[in-house]
């Protein structure tokens, strides 16, 4: 019930493509990491493991296009787009709530569609247009209708889920999933709000949809 995230699809497809496309060893290391939680207690020493993973650690030069600006970086290939945005580019508006694709706090727009930046490797985001919360307002400071609606409807409390909610909501409207409160509730359910500002989020999305369509 928690995970009504149709935006997961392109992300995991993207990740799979990368895994296949990269050197075998690197892929093995990448594949291990989501499973690594199972515990340090279990010794995990595949033969020549050192050789295998050194591949993934070697920083790879790459260019990410964020909010219309190119950023040339050298990154550990295991780094997620989320960490690249926050730690390397300095756009800390995108938030980490789980790092596992379970909360929506890290939602950004990639090529105009909502994606979870914690499930997107930075290397896989090359050549795609990334939009974060920092890139929404106009240069003159005028807020996007969704940002304005969130303020007017008090659609947040602590604000931690808010950047993800706003970008997800824009995606939701563009997908045509914001026509009714029921549809908004359903298609915004991948974005958890522990403060539980849900009724106000629905009201904000409803208002912004009208403004965005005008």
């Amino acid at each position: 019930m928690n995970e009504e995230q149709d935006n997961n699809q392109p992300v995991s497809r993207q990740r799979r493509r990368f895994l296949v496309g990269s050197a075998q060893g690197g892929a093995a290391a990448l594949f291990l990491s989501p499973l690594g939680n199972l515990g340090a207690a279990a010794p995990r020493k595949p033969a020549s493991s050192e050789d295998i993973v050194s591949d993934a650690r070697t920083p790879l030069p790459m260019t990410l296009e964020v909010n219309g600006k190119p950023h040339s970086l050298r990154l550990d290939t295991r780094m997620t787009l989320l960490d690249a945005l926050r730690d390397e580019i300095g756009l800390t508006g995108t938030k980490k709530g789980c790092d596992h694709g379970q909360c929506g706090a890290c939602t950004v727009l990639v090529d105009g569609r909502r994606e979870l930046s914690c499930l997107t490797l930075a290397v896989a985001a090359q050549g795609r247009e990334i939009q974060t919360i920092e890139g929404l307002a106009n240069a003159d400071g005028a807020l996007h209708p969704m940002q304005q609606a969130f303020i007017e409807h008090d659609a947040f409390q602590c604000g931690y889920c808010t950047p993800g909610q706003i970008l997800s909501a824009i995606g939701c409207v563009r997908e045509g999933h914001a026509d009714t409160p029921e549809s908004i509730r359903e298609f915004m359910s991948g974005n958890l709000c522990r403060c539980a500002a849900y009724p106000n989020i629905v009201a904000a999305v409803t208002q912004a949809r009208q403004a965005m369509e005008e």
Binding site: T92, G93, E134, L136, L143, I151, D154, G159
Partner: peptide, 21 residues
Amino acid sequence: SPRYESREKVTGMARYPADMR
């Protein structure tokens, strides 16, 4: 009245402790 820190929160400018670089 609307929240004092509304604008910071909808623009990603509110700096939570992990955001300090």
